[in-house]
């Protein structure tokens, strides 16, 4: 009797499983169910799928690494990767340079500044599907506004989205229209954080406006720029919706990017297992990129 009383009372089972504050789970559960159900389960399931030959309709069978082997020499996948890289290589630097320029232009006390800022941000809020529909009218080869303007200027009409050599570039342009607003907000916020006294000190030392920008402001913006490079790259590599809304990968597959290729393999050609394997390779790249961003933050924190 006494020995039992002396020992620390064993924690009830519920407490051992649920922790010291079991009621916390009530609050966590809804979000946890959503995250597990909508993200974790599909991620695990598509990993399984990537080792199978499956059309999502019949049971399918296991094929080991055959899907991953096949994607090593798939010419269509290679050209899709090429398109994604071209898109990323253009979109990321351009969106950052334009974003910075616009942010600097908007970071001054001029009349109607609120209006300008809103106007720049507006396209960023519009859904990609809306952008796609809007621009496919503007850039229509025969009846679009873009060619009408070129006519007025005396420049030859262009094929735009209907020309295999131009379609991807036009998509970059549309993506910039919609995506530059994000760089602008981020840079605007960062510009407000540049210490006033640093700028003033540089002025006192005789720095011209460009000098201040180059030697004081830009270095202060470095961490934000790194973040933007990584973030916009992650977005570019996942490009899908704009392609779906404008060209569906055409003309002549000139705008088939990697994620669109995954969609096509899974839901048009019924090669779901293969599509999952491609998706996993893309995911591996994205994770590596995200790790790079974390690594940079850790390193710069250590130096600071």
């Amino acid at each position: 009797m006494s020995s039992e009383a002396a020992a620390a009372p064993p924690r009830p089972l519920a407490k051992r499983i649920l922790g010291e504050t079991p009621s916390a789970w009530v609050f966590v559960a809804p979000a946890a169910v959503i995250i597990v159900g909508l993200a974790i389960v599909p991620i695990g399931w598509s990993l399984v799928l990537s080792f199978r030959a499956s059309d999502l309709l019949s049971p399918g069978h296991s094929v080991g690494f055959a899907n991953y082997d096949a994607l090593l020499d798939d010419p269509d996948l290679r050209s899709a990767v090429g398109h994604t890289l071209v898109f990323t290589g253009l979109f990321v630097p351009l969106s950052i340079v334009f974003g910075l320029l616009l942010a600097i232009a908007l970071n001054r006390p001029i009349r109607l500044i609120g209006f300008y800022r809103t106007a720049i941000l507006l396209p960023f809020i519009a859904s990609t599907a809306v952008q796609g529909v809007l621009f496919s009218y503007i850039f229509d080869e025969r009846f679009g506004v873009a060619n009408a303007v070129l006519d007025k200027l005396g420049i030859a009409r262009q094929g735009f989205l209907g020309d295999p050599d131009q379609a991807l570039l036009v998509i970059v342009l549309i993506a910039l229209w919609g995506g530059v607003g994000f760089s602008v907000i981020i840079y605007l916020a960062a510009l407000q954080d540049v210490p006033r006294d640093l700028v003033d000190a540089a002025r006192v030392d005789g720095a011209k406006r460009l000098g201040v920008l180059r030697h004081v402001v830009l270095p202060q913006l470095m961490p934000v720029t790194v973040f933007l490079v990584i973030w916009q790259t992650l977005l570019s590599l996942q490009l899908f919706d704009l392609v779906y809304a404008t060209t569906r990968g055409g003309p002549l597959d000139s705008t088939v990017v990697v994620v669109y290729y995954v969609y096509k393999q899974a839901f048009v050609l019924f090669n779901a297992g293969y599509a999952a394997a491609v998706a996993y390779v893309v995911a591996a790249f994205l994770i590596a990129l995200a790790c790079l961003q974390i690594l940079y933050r850790r390193l710069s924190a250590r130096h600071a």
Binding site: S136, F143, G162, P251
Partner: peptide, 13 residues
């Protein structure tokens, strides 16, 4: 050559 998604443009023309 109708390159619009869903080939809607032809009908509109």
């Amino acid at each position: 050559i109708d390159t619009s998604a869903g080939s809607e443009r032809m009908n509109q023309l």
